[in-house]
Each structure stands twice: as structure tokens, then as C-alpha cells.
Amino acid sequence: MSSLNYAAPTTVDEAVKLLAGASGLAKVLSGGTDLLVQLRAGRLKPDLIVDTKKIPGIIGIRKGSDGGFVIGAATPGAEVEANAELNAAWPGLVEALDLIGSTQVQGRCSLAGNLCNASPAADSVPALYAAGAIAVVVGSKGRREVPVEQIPTGPGRTSLAKDEFILEFKLPPRGPRSADAYLRFIPRTEMDIAVVGCGINVTLDEKGVCTAARVALGAVSPTVIMVPEAAQILVGHTLDADTLAKLDAAAQAAAKPITDKRGTVEYRKKIAGVLARRVAAIAFDRAQGKTNGKAH
């Protein structure tokens, strides 16, 4: 008989108590698209699984009091993708989440799962970072709001305490001429883990000059990284050839990848530069209302 326990609490308090009181390893289950693979492979041997999907608000998309979107932590990718308003405001974030796995995986995978699995190659995470998303974290000590880039601390590791989990993500209110984009490079057209991923979020003035930018890179470091040097290159400029060349160089310089089965150091650095240019072009176009089509 199995020693693995399961609980599906219906309140935050109940969930926090279960996590705090667990004797061994307790894992939070959202969509399970990473967790179940790790369980089956024997890489993880938890004693308790806490399924958070029955907690009110953890699935769904709403507008917060500041006018920004609030996305329930366990909302499946397919539900996020189906939200037209969110798509219009944050197309980069939506397509980043949409790039995770297959249609089947989209039926389950969530932003919280992708973030807390803490893979440097997670697709939605560079887009979340670029968006400046805030994670609403709940635990025994109450509720705290944390910039998403403070959650992952290393491959498979997060800053969350044992009794904490993410309830929802808050996106900042969207001003005019603002847009985001995300691209990842993979060897096939689908179903791969990113060799490199890049998310960029920009605001432009009426002349198309960038006034604010956030640039994030995935799969080039132990965690997804923010690249402020790259963002600074964009601010004060349009996307002219010189800016693009500098952006490419900044992304390459910031990338500190490893060589593994998915790519080499040399290749990943080059691709980081290529993607930064391509993503910036999409984000700028979108911010100027030129296109809102799918990037992939």
C-alpha cells in the first residue's frame, strides 16, 4: 500500500495548515504537468500532495482594483489563451504560456507551476519577468506580494517557505503604446524545451521612441534572468539598426549558458542575441499597433 497522501483543500488556511504540518516532503499540485513526470520517474518522492485547484480564486482571470489583470495561479494555459482582453493587453505573456508543451499540456499547465518548477528554460517565466508581474504568496505568516523574479533561486529551487504557495499573479495596469512579446528557440516546431527564451515588454512614446523596457532571458543561466543592460539600450531609442546590434550584443554578453543536450554555450549566446532582436521588433510593432498577430 502506498504511503503517498493526497489532500484537496478548499480554503487557503486549510492548504497552508496541511503544508505546514506535513511530516515529510509536501508538494503543491496545480496542473501537475511537471510534478507527475517527476513522480513517475522517481525523481521526487513526496509524502503529501496538496492539490490547490479547489481553492476559490486560484483558477480564473479578473481585473484588480488598480485595473491590472489578476491571474489565478493554477489557471490552465488553455483558459488564459481563451481570454481575449488579456491577449490584447499581454500578448507576449499569453503566447509564452501557450508555448509550454502540447495542446494536452495546455489543458493543465499553469503560471505558478511553470514558475515554481524553477526551470531556467520555463517558457512563461521570461514573459512574467518582463511584464513585471507580482506573485501573491500565501503561507502561515500571512500574505505577501513578491516580484516574480524573486521566486526562483536556482534550478528546481524557490524562495517559497515549506508552507507557502502562490495564490495569484498581478500584472501592472497597461498604459498606451505598451506591448510585450516572447519567443523561444527550439529545434522542432513544438514539444521541445527552450534552447533560449526571450521576453521583452516595452512602452513607446508617440514617435515610437522607447520610454520603458524590461528584457528577460531564459535558458542561459541557472534561473531566468533580467537583462537591465539590454533594456537600457532600448530606452530612448527607436529600433534602428544600431540599437538592434547593441541589443544583440547586450543579450549575448548577459547570457551565461552551459553546454548540455539542448545546446552549446556558443550557440545559446548567439541565439540569445538573435531572439532579443526578433522579440524587440515584435514588441515595438505591437506597441505601435502595427500587428497583434501570433509570433509563432
Binding site: Y6, A8, G32, L36, I49, D51, G107
Partner: peptide, 19 residues
Amino acid sequence: CSVIVDGRLVCSCLMLGVE
């Protein structure tokens, strides 16, 4: 192993039976 759960396509290998 694809199945449809409450109208949504999922891999049944990535879902616990208890869910």
C-alpha cells in the same frame, strides 16, 4: 493517452486518478 476532462484535452498520464 489523450482524454477530454470537462471539455478540455489533457494527457491522462499527467493527471492523478484522484483528481
